[in-house]
């Protein structure tokens, strides 16, 4: 069950659109739900569908189309590394390799303690800052050379 706070936030999103276009808030609603619940379970998807008056499969289409939504549980820290060409030219792939080695997991895997999930990302629109990675979808980390990766992992408790 989503909290009252989550519904209040969703209401604010709904208000951005014309009254008969509640569905427009679905992306924001799913993001809000995921931030609160950690991932999007079947129940959460149904709850969002019901709240916005959408068929559940329409919500599922959205949740499975945009790759920042997690349809399975992830670790406390989800680290998404961009390995696209501009980043790769500046070490994006090597940064990912470094993280794999440090965490002992591959892409789409979670560390045994449930703390970290590693994901491969596509362009985040910050190619000048390569290597770039995103923590829990909200915090973008730039110029992630090994020392900065070490520091980031150290910060994550």
């Amino acid at each position: 069950m989503l909290s009252q706070d989550a519904f209040r936030k969703i209401d604010r999103e709904i208000a951005k659109y014309p009254a008969e276009q509640k569905q427009s808030a679905v992306m924001a609603a799913l993001a809000i739900a995921q931030m609160e619940q950690g991932w999007l379970s079947t129940e959460t998807l149904e709850e969002v569908a019901c709240y916005l008056g959408m068929p559940p499969v329409a919500v599922y289409e959205v949740a499975s189309f945009y790759n920042m939504y997690d349809l399975a549980p992830v670790g406390k820290y989800k680290i998404t590394v961009c390995t696209n060409l501009p980043c790769a030219l500046s070490g994006g792939v090597h940064a990912a390799d470094y993280l794999k080695q440090k965490l002992g997991v591959g892409f789409n895997e979670t560390t045994a303690d449930g703390k970290f999930t590693l994901k491969e990302g596509e362009c985040m629109g910050a190619c000048g800052d390569a290597p770039v990675l995103l923590v829990n979808n909200v915090r973008m980390c730039s110029f992630m050379q090994p020392a900065r990766i070490d520091a980031l992992l150290g910060e994550c408790e």
Binding site: K16, Q21, K22, Q23, S24, A25, V26, M27, A28, L30, A31, L52, M54, V62, F65, Y66, N67, M68, Y69, G121, E122, C123, N137
Partner: peptide, 21 residues
């Protein structure tokens, strides 16, 4: 309105679909 990870939404009509939820 924020996206959530889909390059194709940079295409203007995909973007409109996305705003429509």
């Amino acid at each position: 309105h924020h996206g959530y990870g889909a390059y194709i939404c940079g295409e203007e009509t995909a973007l409109l679909e996305s705003i429509e939820g």
